[in-house]
Design a protein around this nucleic acid. Structure first.
Lengths: 189, 189
DNA sequence: TAGGTTTCGTATCGATCACTATGGATAAAT
DNA sequence: ATTTATCCATAGTGATCGATACGAAACCTA
């Protein structure tokens, strides 16, 4: 998982995986069928072990603004954990691929879309409860937040520290409309 | 350039380049030395032909907020041009690579850092002119804006339309402190 | 027109890719 | 103890990678 996270799907060779796992090629293929299946298992493991902060943040019984704050600050921490590759596996795992690996790229895109949809669901809930203005575009704001998190993933990969990512997250939070207030996400211009 | 933009450095094979350029392998190597040099030439061409909006926006004689607005909206348009690969070559060209292509990955990171530095310079100028609050962190805000643009690049790659990217850009602009106002980029929490 | 030079495409180089067949070592059974 | 069966690492499969050696064709000069 760490190798795929660091080098992406295609650039991670079986020789690297073999050495890291201490297994012979037949053992790997006996256990994981093929490289693509192994990658998908790594994705599932990543989803379960590394980004629990997202589900926690979005499902916590707190006001919407606080949920989003936890989401972004959780990302800041998860994307810069010491001893782990920087950024998010769903972003760096297969952003640009050869035509042969299109299926893997699509799989990751699906994960990213699911994250955005989860954010949108939480925003819609917050709107229903009155945490967010009536005229706020749930989809547009979810796309902004997902985009910010993806951007944090790139910044983390470029060496941003956890403190720098936290500042970025706090800055992004300033775009959130204050509760009860009625304003569009953007000023008209 | 389009092939590297779409598939990234490593996943773009010489066979694809050969077919796209209509050249024989010796012609390619005679003209560009090797694949890495060809990629660097593509980077320079991309810088000159595709992202002029950034330099224009940052050097235009307009208030800082307007400059940033032009920067983000220019990115929205540049990252979703019809007939062009989505996103930014500097992001998708080599985000995760094999150890052999580390030099290329570092080169792209340098481009991204330069973009962030250019934004920081413009912000520092705006602060000096009084467009921005005294206590605003130039580096922190530049990292936010660069991160948002990187995030827009991912969203564009996932199929976001130019309108959706514009909404994202407008949303991101809401994090900009209003002129003359004195506030930190983030509320304290 | 003949000779010498230069250009240029084909065919191939060694290396590495994901992946697997096979031979030897070990364990189980008679 | 001897045979049978099962496992498993080594060695190698065809394919493709980036890069190039070599022979043929074209061109300029004499």
């Amino acid at each position: 998982m760490h190798l795929f996270w660091e080098h992406g799907y295609e650039a991670t060779s079986l020789a690297m995986l073999r050495e890291a796992m201490g297994l012979t090629p037949p053992q790997i293929y006996n256990a994981f069928t093929d490289k693509e299946t192994l990658f998908r298992k790594a994705l599932m493991r990543y989803h379960q072990t590394e980004i629990g902060f997202a589900l926690e943040a979005l499902s916590a019984p707190v006001p919407t603004r606080e949920a989003i704050r936890r989401l972004l600050l959780g990302a800041a921490e998860a994307y810069s954990r010491p001893g782990k590759p920087g950024g998010c596996l769903f972003v760096s795992g297969a952003l640009a691929t050869s035509p042969q690996a299109q299926a893997v790229a699509d799989e990751l895109k699906t994960y990213r879309k699911a994250s955005e949809a989860a954010i949108a669901d939480r925003l819609a809930n917050g709107k229903a409860v009155g945490d967010l203005p009536e005229n706020l575009s749930v989809e547009g704001f979810a796309k902004y937040l997902a985009g910010v998190m993806n951007g944090m993933s790139i910044q983390a990969r470029d060496g941003a520290s956890v403190e720098e990512l936290r500042v970025l997250a706090q800055t992004a939070l300033a775009a959130l409309p204050a509760e009860g207030q009625n304003q569009t996400a953007s000023s008209k211009e």
